[in-house]
C-alpha cells in the first residue's frame, strides 16, 4: 500500500486560476453532494437534543394556525362573510412561514458557519441556499396538513390553479433566497442585520392577505387605485394570493348555503400575469443580491 502512495501523481493539467473563485449561485447547485451534506447538518443541528424532533414541525404550525383562526375568525369575527376562512389563513401561513424561515435562517447562516468559512474554501452561497432548502423541507409537514384539509373540504382545482400555486411558491423561494443572500453578507459586517430581519418579519405577516381577505384592501382602495397597486407590488402578497388560488379558491362554493357569505371570493385581476412579472422582478433582485454577495464575500474570513 505504502509503495503505491509513493508513486508520483499525474500533475494537474488544468489552468492556473484564482483560488476560491466559484462563480456564484448556479455552481452551488452543481455541488449537489456537498449541498446535501449541509442540509443534513442543518436539520440535525435544529433538532439536536430534541425528543419530539420533526413532530415539532407539525405542532408549531398547528398551534399558530389555531391562534390566528380563533382570534381573528371568532374574536374579531372576520370569518363571517368569508368562505372556508380557515383554509384562507392556513394556505397563506404556509407561504409566509416559508418566506420568513428562509429569510431569517439564511441571514444568520454565514455567521453561524464561521468555523467552516474561516478555514476552508468553498462557494459561500452554499449556506443561505442550504437554509432555503431546509425551510422548504419544513414546509412539507404543513403541506401534508393542507392537502388533508382541502380534500376533506372538497377540492377541484383547474390546471390554471395548479400553475398559480407553483408560481406562488417560486416567487416565495426566489424572493426569500434573494433577501437571505443579501442580508447574510451584510450580517457579517454588522450584526444589526439579523435584528432588522426580525423586524421585517413582523411586518411580513401583516403585508399579505392572511388574516384578512383581499377584498378588504379593494374596499380600502376605493377611489385610490394606487393603494391596491402598491399593495400588489409586494412579492409576498402575490405569492400568498397565488397560493390561495390553488388551495383556497377551488374549495369555495359559488352558491353558498349560508346567504351571509360572499359567493365568489374576490381576487385581484390578472393574478397569473402579475405573478409572472413579479417572479421576473424577484429574479432581478436575486441577481443583484448575488452581485453584492460576491463583492462582500472576499472579506468574510477576516470580518467574522
Amino acid at each position: 500500500m505504502a509503495t503505491d502512495l509513493l508513486e508520483p501523481r499525474r500533475p494537474p493539467d488544468g489552468p492556473l486560476e484564482p483560488p476560491g473563485d466559484y462563480g456564484g449561485l448556479h455552481n452551488v447547485f452543481r455541488e449537489r453532494y456537498l449541498l446535501r451534506l449541509l442540509v443534513k447538518k442543518e436539520l440535525q443541528a435544529r433538532y439536536q437534543g430534541s425528543f419530539l424532533g420533526l413532530i415539532w414541525s407539525y405542532i408549531q404550525p398547528l398551534v399558530r394556525f389555531l391562534a390566528y383562526y380563533l382570534v381573528i375568525g371568532y374574536v374579531l369575527g372576520l370569518n363571517r362573510g368569508v368562505q372556508n376562512f380557515a383554509l384562507h389563513i392556513f394556505a397563506a401561513m404556509v407561504m409566509v412561514h416559508y418566506f420568513t424561515e428562509t429569510f431569517s435562517a439564511g441571514t444568520r447562516s454565514i455567521v453561524r458557519n464561521k468555523g467552516l468559512i474561516q478555514k476552508l474554501s468553498m462557494p459561500r452561497e452554499m449556506f443561505p441556499v442550504a437554509s432555503m432548502l431546509v425551510s422548504a423541507y419544513h414546509t412539507l409537514p404543513q403541506l401534508v396538513i393542507l392537502f388533508v384539509a382541502v380534500f376533506i373540504t372538497g377540492w377541484d382545482p383547474t390546471l390554471a390553479d395548479v400553475a398559480a400555486g407553483l408560481l406562488g411558491f417560486a416567487i416565495m423561494a426566489t424572493f426569500g433566497m434573494a433577501l437571505a443572500l443579501l442580508f447574510s453578507a451584510a450580517n457579517v459586517f454588522f450584526r444589526d442585520f439579523s435584528n432588522i430581519v426580525t423586524t421585517i418579519g413582523i411586518f411580513v405577516t401583516w403585508s399579505a392577505p392572511m388574516i384578512y381577505p383581499f377584498d378588504r384592501i379593494r374596499k380600502l382602495a376605493q377611489g385610490h387605485e394606487w393603494v391596491e397597486t402598491l399593495y400588489l407590488t409586494n412579492p409576498i402578497a402575490n405569492g400568498v394570493l397565488l397560493f390561495q388560488q390553488l388551495f383556497w379558491i377551488p374549495t369555495t362554493d359559488p352558491t353558498p348555503a349560508d346567504p351571509t357569505q360572499d359567493p365568489i371570493p374576490l381576487m385581484p385581476d390578472y393574478l397569473l400575469t402579475r405573478g409572472l412579472i413579479v417572479l421576473a422582478a424577484c429574479l432581478v433582485i436575486l441577481a443583484f443580491s448575488q452581485w453584492v454577495f460576491s463583492r462582500l464575500e472576499g472579506k468574510f474570513a477576516e470580518r467574522l
Binding site: G14, P19, G298, K299, E302
Partner: peptide
Amino acid sequence: SGVMRPDGGTVLTRGRI
C-alpha cells in the same frame, strides 16, 4: 487556499488544494 482574497496583486493556483 482561497479563504481570503488579496486586496492587491494576484494569486493563481493550479489544481485542487
